[in-house]
């Protein structure tokens, strides 16, 4: 933090994950689910919401317990807490929709190793009171969901000619098969990163360096 700068406001806490430190487009974290399950907008949203749920649950517990958890065993504690919420969300998705559960496959269980969650627990939740930590986690979760949705919607539109299962171009549409295959995920992610960086450099060049070089 820059010396002399005061605590971020609640709004800044919330917006951190959505724009300045977006998990997908800026931090490039959690790429395993981001690339693997984003073949459709629904899958992407479901994955984003599941991750947000785990993020919120673990943030709350970690933040509540932050005073009692000894430094030496904190990582072990965080992982147990995160794994718990991942298991819970795993059951919940299977109960809500089996089709969705099968589409997301092993990547629900793999939320446990998603770097965003452990990263936020260590960097934010363990150092802030529950209210503030939850606001930040909500922003991060929404940011991650937006990122996945940006990938998933492009891949579904080109790869199947649909959005949320609704055909956009009529029955004659030729699907771009590559978009639902793993290389398509990389291409679309690359294109989004290109766009984000271009927007950023353009913003910096046009004399608005206000937020650009402040590192949270």
């Amino acid at each position: 933090m820059i010396p002399g700068r005061q605590e971020p406001t609640r709004f800044e806490e919330f917006m951190e994950g959505i724009w300045k430190q977006n998990p997908v487009f800026v931090m490039v974290l959690g790429m395993c689910p981001a690339l693997a399950v984003t073949v459709s907008a629904v899958n992407a949203l479901a994955m984003g919401l599941a991750t947000t749920f785990v993020l919120l649950g673990s943030t709350l517990l970690v933040s509540l317990m932050r005073k009692w958890v000894p430094r030496e065993v904190r990582i072990a504690t965080y992982i147990v807490i995160i794994a718990t919420f991942v298991t819970v969300v795993d059951y919940l998705i299977a109960a809500i929709s089996l089709a969705l559960y099968e589409a997301l496959g092993a990547f629900i269980q793999l939320i446990v190793v998603n770097c965003i969650i452990l990263g936020r627990a260590e960097a934010h939740a363990s150092r802030n009171p529950p209210g503030r930590a939850l606001i930040n986690a909500t922003g991060m979760g929404i940011g991650f969901t937006i990122g996945l949705f940006a990938l998933g919607s492009v891949r579904e539109i080109l790869g199947a000619g649909k959005l949320f299962g609704v055909a956009l171009f009529g029955p004659e549409f030729q699907p771009w098969v590559i978009m639902v295959l793993p290389p398509g995920g990389f291409f679309v992610l690359g294109a989004w990163l290109l766009l984000f960086n271009w927007l950023k450099t353009r913003g910096a060049a046009s004399g608005k360096p206000a937020e650009a070089n402040v590192h949270a």
Partner: peptide
């Protein structure tokens, strides 16, 4: 390579 993966039938 791109169109081969994208349009395997064509």
């Amino acid at each position: 390579a791109f169109v081969q993966a994208a349009f395997p039938a064509a």
